[in-house]
Design a protein around this nucleic acid. Structure first.
Length: 938
DNA sequence: TTGAATGAAAG
DNA sequence: CTTTCATTCAA
C-alpha cells in the first residue's frame, strides 16, 4: 500500500483523504460554514491539496482501496450507515403503522403505501422529516468526517478488501484509516469507532480542526464545554444549536472534555444520556440534573407516564421521595392558588404511593390503587386545569423568551401550552438560565430511570395481579376502543356520571359542551380555565390557536389527533408492559372488540364507579397520555424547528433534549428501536449517536394511517391489498414533463417488463392495476384534471396553509417539479399512482399538476367532510382560501370528545380495516359529532 | 439476497 | 442521467 502511505501523509496534512465529500459536509453544516469563513484560507489550501490528492488517487487506484481497507479495519462492524433521508425516516417511523393497519401486506407493499403517504404528506410535515434528515446527516458527517456516501460507484466496489459487505465498505472513512496512525484519536476507538475524531493536534487535524472549531463555536467556547457549565448562557440559541448529537460527537472526539460531562449539569444531554443508558451513574448523573431543574416537559412526561399506570407509581414514589418536598416548595413559591390543589394532588399521590408500597407488600388493594391512581390522574389533570390561564400565559411567555424561538404563533403557542401545563405543577423550575438543553437532559435521565424502575416494579408487582388485568382492560378498551365504549365513556364523562370527583366532572362537562357547542373554545377563558386544562391537553393548540392564529397549529392539532389515535395502538404494542397487555395490542387491530365490550361491561358491572373510573382512566390514558405525548412531541419539534431557525439550515434546534424527554416518556418511543437499545450497553459511541438519533427520530411526528387513508382513497384501501395505493391523488407534476414522461414511459414499461414482468399483472396485493396502456395514456395525457375521485376524504387536518407551496397559481406547469434525479421512478410512480379509483370504483386518472393542492383541498374538505362530497365540491373552488380561515375554527372544535371520537373512529377503522366506515360513516358511530360541528360552523 | 419506495450523493 | 445505498422484512 503505497497508496495508503501516501494517503496517510495526506491525511495527516489535510485531514484524511480530503475527499470532496468531507469538505462538503463541513460546508454544509452551518456552524462549519461559519468557521469556514474564518478558515477559508486554510481550507482553500486544503482544497487544492485535496484536489491534488484526488488526482493522485485517481491515478492510483490503490489509494481508494487502501482507504477502504483501512476503513474496513476500523469499521468492519461499525459500518456507519449512511444517514437516512427524509423519506426513509418517514418510512421508518410509519412502517409499523402501515403494517399494523395492513398486517397482510409485506414490506414492499408497505413501502408503497408509505410512498403514497409521503407523496400526500403535507409539505410542512415533509419538511420536518427533511430537516431531521439533514440534521442527522450533519451530525453524522461530523461524527464521520471522512465518510463517503457512495464509494465511487463502480470502481471501488470491486475492491477485494470489500469482502465484508460491499455496501458498508463502500463508504469508507478514508480519513480515519489514515489518521489512525498519525493521531491519537484512536484512543476513543472502542467507544466510538464511528467517530473519527480524535484530533489531538489541531495543526495536524487539518479539516478536522474545522470541525473542532465548529464544535467550539457551537459551544460558545471550548472552555465552556470543557470546564464550566454555565447554566445561564444568555444565548440559549447557541447552546441549543448544538445538537446533542453534535455535542456527543465532540465529546467523543475527546478534544473538548473527555471526562467531565458526567457531573456537569451542562454536559451535553447526549452524553448524559449515554451515561444513563450505560447505567453507570444513573443516580448520580440524574440527580444533579434534577437539581438543575426539572424541565416542565419532563414533568409532563412524568405525568403522562403516571397516567399510564402502575409503573408510574413507582417512579412517582421514587421521585416523590426525592423531590416531592422540593416540588411542593416550588409550587408554593409559584402558585399559591394551585398549591392547595396541588397539595391535594400530592397527597393523593403520596397516599397512593403509600398504598402502593403497602400493596406491594401486601398485594391487596388493587382496586384502591386503581382508584387512587385514577384519582391521581384526575387530580393531576385537575391541577393542571387549576392553573389559571394567566399564569400559563406568563409561563409561556417566559418560556418563549427562554426558548426565544417561537416567533411563530401557532407553534409557539402550542408548545407553550404544553409546557405550561407541566409547569403548573412543578414547573416553575424552568429557570431562565436553565436552558432547555440543560433541562432536557434531566428529563432524559429521569425518564429512563423511571422506565427501568418501572419495569422492575412491574415485575415485582406482578404480585398484584389484579391491577394489571384491569389495566389491560383499560388499555384494551381505549386502544381498541369500540366506538361504543368510547362513546359511552365520553358520554358518561359528559354527563358527569362518573364524576367521582366533581372537579373532574365539571371539566368534563364543560369539555363536552364545548365540543358540542363548539364555540366553547372561545369561552374557555376564565371560568373554565381549569377545566380547560384537560382540553388543552387534548387539543392544546386549539385553544391557543383560537386566540392567536392557528393555521399551522391547526395542522398540528390535527396531526396530533392523528397521532393520538394512531399511536395508541402502537404504543401499546410497543410497550413491553405486561405480557397480557402486549398480547392485546395486536388483537387491537382487528379482533379484540368483543373483549373490549366485555371489558367495558365488566367494568361497569363491577362497580359503576370504578368501572367508570377505569373507563375514564382508559380514556385519559389513551387520549391524554398518549395524545399528549405525541402532540407534545410534535409540537415541541415544531416549535424547536421553527424556533431553531426558520427552517432548513439550522437544524440543531431539532436535536434538543426535549424531544428526548418526550420520546422517552413517550411510550411508543423505544419500542420500535429494538436495535439501538441493545446497543446501548455496547458503549459504542455510535450507539449513543444512534440513541440520540432515535430520540430525535421519535420526536418526529407520526401520522395516523387514517389520515392518509382518508386522504388517499378510502375505498380502494379497503382491502389493504387490493386497495391500490394508487389512491394517491397526487401525481407529480406532469405538465412540463410530458415529453419526458413519454420517454420515461417507454423506458419504464420496458424496464418493468424486463425486470419484473408484471406490467399488467396486479402487483402483489397492492395491485395497482396499472397497465402499460394506462401508463402510456397517462403519459400522453397528463390530464391535469382535478382529480375527480377526490373522494372527499375526510381528513381532518391537513389543510395547511401551505398556500405558499401552491400559490394558487393555476399553472400546473410551474409545478413543484421535484424533477429530481430519479425521474424515472417518479414517473413510474406517478403513473401508477396516477390511476385513482374513485369511490365509484372506476379508475380515474388523476393527473393534477399539483397533487398537493388537491390533497390539501381534499384535506380541507375533510375537515368539513361531514358535509360530504357536495360540500367538498362547493368548496373546492374556495377551499384554498377559505380553508385557511376555517381551519382554525375547525381546530378549535377539537375537543376531548372530538378527539375521543376520532380515536374511536380510527380504531374502528383499523379494526374493520377499512373504509366503509369512513366512507359511509355509519350514522351512529361515525364521527358525526365533530363533523357536524364543523359543518355547523360553516 | 431481493425488492418496494424516495432522496442524496457521486460518478 | 444513472447508479448506490439508506430502512424494513416477507419471500
Amino acid at each position: 500500500m503505497k497508496g495508503s502511505n501516501r494517503n496517510k501523509d495526506h491525511s495527516a496534512e489535510g485531514e484524511g483523504a480530503g475527499k470532496r465529500p468531507k469538505r462538503k459536509c463541513l460546508q454544509w453544516h452551518p456552524l462549519l460554514a461559519k468557521k469556514l469563513l474564518d478558515f477559508s484560507e486554510e481550507e482553500e489550501e486544503e482544497d487544492e491539496e485535496e484536489d491534488i490528492d484526488k488526482v493522485q488517487l485517481l491515478g492510483a487506484d490503490g489509494l481508494e482501496q487502501d482507504v477502504g481497507e483501512t476503513e474496513d479495519d476500523e469499521s468492519p462492524e461499525q459500518r456507519a450507515r449512511r444517514p437516512m433521508n427524509a423519506f426513509l425516516l418517514f418510512c421508518k417511523r410509519h412502517r409499523s403503522l402501515v403494517r399494523q393497519e395492513h398486517p397482510r401486506l409485506d414490506n414492499r407493499g408497505a413501502t408503497k403505501i408509505l410512498a403514497d403517504w409521503w407523496a400526500v404528506l403535507d409539505p410542512k410535515e415533509k419538511q420536518k422529516y427533511t430537516d431531521m434528515a439533514k440534521e442527522y446527516k450533519d451530525a453524522f458527517m461530523k461524527a464521520n468526517p471522512g465518510y463517503k456516501w457512495c464509494p465511487t460507484t463502480n470502481k471501488p466496489v470491486k475492491s477485494p478488501t470489500s469482502t465484508v459487505n460491499p455496501r458498508k465498505k463502500l463508504w469508507a472513512f478514508p480519513s480515519d484509516s489514515s489518521r489512525d496512525l498519525s493521531s491519537p484519536k484512536k484512543a476513543k476507538t472502542e467507544e466510538m469507532p464511528q467517530l473519527n475524531f480524535g484530533m489531538a493536534d489541531p495543526t495536524q487535524m487539518g479539516g478536522l480542526s474545522m470541525l473542532l472549531l465548529a464544535g467550539e463555536h457551537a459551544l460558545g467556547t471550548p472552555e465552556i464545554s470543557s470546564g464550566t457549565c454555565r447554566p445561564d448562557v444568555s444565548e440559549s440559541s447557541e447552546l441549543r444549536q448544538k445538537s446533542p448529537l453534535f455535542q456527543f460527537a465532540e465529546i467523543s472526539s475527546g478534544t473538548s472534555h473527555p471526562d467531565v460531562p458526567s457531573k456537569q449539569c451542562q454536559a451535553s444531554a447526549l452524553f448524559q444520556f449515554a451515561e444513563i443508558s450505560s447505567n453507570t451513574s444513573q443516580l448520580g448523573s440524574a440527580e444533579p440534573v434534577k437539581r438543575c431543574g426539572k424541565s416542565a416537559l419532563f414533568q409532563l412526561a412524568e405525568m403522562c407516564l403516571a397516567s399510564e399506570g402502575v409503573k408510574m407509581e413507582e417512579s412517582k414514589l421514587i421521585k416523590a421521595k426525592e423531590s416531592d418536598g422540593g416540588r411542593i416548595k416550588e409550587l408554593e413559591k409559584g402558585k399559591e392558588e394551585r398549591e392547595i390543589k396541588m397539595e391535594k394532588i400530592d397527597e393523593a399521590r403520596l397516599q397512593k404511593e403509600a398504598e402502593f408500597e403497602k400493596s406491594a407488600k401486601e398485594n391487596v388493594r388493587d382496586s384502591k390503587e386503581l382508584r387512587n391512581f385514577e384519582e391521581l390522574r384526575m387530580d393531576d389533570i385537575m391541577g393542571i386545569k387549576m392553573e389559571a390561564p394567566k399564569e400559563i400565559k406568563k409561563e409561556e411567555l417566559e418560556e418563549d423568551q427562554k426558548c426565544s424561538h417561537f416567533p411563530d404563533f401557532s407553534y409557539s403557542a402550542s408548545s407553550k401550552i404544553i409546557i405550561s401545563d407541566v409547569p403548573s405543577r412543578k414547573d416553575h423550575m424552568c429557570h431562565p438560565h436553565g436552558i432547555m438543553i440543560i433541562e432536557d437532559p434531566t428529563a432524559l435521565s429521569k425518564p429512563e430511570k423511571l422506565k427501568k424502575k418501572k419495569k422492575k416494579n412491574k415485575m415485582d408487582r406482578h404480585g398484584n395481579d389484579k391491577s394489571t388485568p384491569k389495566k389491560t382492560c383499560k388499555k384494551r378498551q381505549s386502544s381498541e376502543s369500540d366506538i361504543e365504549s368510547v362513546m359511552y365513556t365520553i358520554e358518561a364523562v359528559a354527563k358527569g356520571d362518573w364524576g367521582i370527583e366533581k372537579l373532574g366532572e365539571t371539566p368534563r362537562k364543560k369539555v363536552r359542551t364545548s365540543s358540542s357547542g363548539k364555540g366553547s373554545i372561545l369561552d374557555a377563558k376564565p371560568p373554565k380555565k381549569k377545566v380547560k386544562s384537560r382540553e388543552k391537553k387534548m387539543s392544546k393548540e386549539k385553544s391557543s390557536d383560537t386566540t392567536k392564529e392557528s393555521r399551522p397549529q391547526d395542522f398540528i392539532s390535527i396531526s396530533a389527533s392523528k397521532n393520538i389515535s394512531g399511536e395508541v395502538p402502537e404504543g401499546i404494542k410497543a410497550e413491553p408492559l405486561t405480557p397480557t397487555e402486549d398480547a392485546l395490542p395486536p388483537s387491537l387491530s382487528g379482533q379484540a372488540k368483543p373483549e373490549d365490550s366485555d371489558c367495558h361491561r365488566k367494568i361497569e358491572t363491577c362497580g359503576s364507579r370504578k368501572s367508570e373510573r377505569s373507563c375514564k382512566g382508559a380514556l385519559y390514558k389513551t387520549l391524554v397520555s398518549e395524545g399528549m405525548l405525541t402532540s407534545l412531541r410534535a409540537n415541541v419539534d415544531r416549535g424547536k424547528r421553527s424556533s431553531g431557525k426558520g427552517n432548513s439550515s439550522d437544524h440543531e434546534g431539532c436535536w434538543n433534549e426535549e424531544s428526548w424527554t418526550f420520546n422517552q416518556s413517550g411510550t411508543s418511543g423505544s419500542k420500535k428501536f429494538k436495535k439501538t437499545k441493545p446497543k446501548e450497553d455496547s458503549l459504542l459511541g455510535s450507539a449513543k449517536l444512534d440513541e440520540e438519533f432515535e430520540k430525535k427520530f421519535n420526536s418526529l411526528p407520526q401520522y395516523s394511517p387514517v389520515t392518509f387513508d382518508r386522504k388517499c382513497v378510502p375505498v380502494p384501501r379497503k382491502k389493504k391489498k387490493t386497495g391500490n395505493m394508487s389512491s394517491e391523488p397526487t401525481k407529480t407534476s406532469k405538465g412540463p414533463f410530458q415529453s419526458q414522461k413519454k420517454n420515461l414511459f417507454h423506458k419504464i414499461v420496458s424496464k418493468y417488463k424486463h425486470k419484473k414482468e408484471k406490467p399488467n399483472v396486479p402487483e402483489k396485493g397492492s395491485g395497482d392495476k396499472w397497465s402499460n396502456k394506462q401508463l402510456f395514456l397517462d403519459a400522453i395525457h397528463p390530464t391535469e384534471a382535478i382529480f375527480s375521485e377526490d373522494k372527499n376524504t375526510t381528513e381532518p387536518a391537513y389543510k395547511v396553509k401551505n398556500a405558499p407551496s401552491i400559490p394558487s397559481t393555476p399553472e400546473p406547469t410551474t409545478t413543484q417539479e421535484p424533477l429530481v434525479g430519479s425521474q424515472k421512478r417518479k414517473a413510474r410512480k406517478t403513473k401508477i399512482t396516477h390511476l385513482v379509483r374513485t369511490a365509484d370504483g372506476r379508475v380515474s386518472p388523476a393527473g393534477d399538476d399539483k397533487p398537493k393542492e388537491q390533497l390539501q383541498r381534499s384535506l380541507a374538505k375533510v375537515t368539513e367532510t361531514g358535509c360530504n362530497d357536495e360540500c367538498s365540491h362547493n368548496r373546492e373552488a374556495t377551499e384554498t382560501r377559505s380553508s385557511t380561515p376555517e381551519m382554525p375554527a375547525v381546530s378549535a372544535f377539537f375537543s376531548l370528545a372530538a378527539l375521543a371520537e376520532v380515536a374511536a373512529m380510527e380504531n374502528v377503522h383499523r379494526g374493520q380495516r377499512s373504509t366503509p366506515l369512513t366512507h359511509d360513516g355509519q350514522p351512529k358511530e361515525m364521527p358525526q359529532a365533530p363533523v357536524l360541528i364543523s359543518c355547523a360552523d360553516q
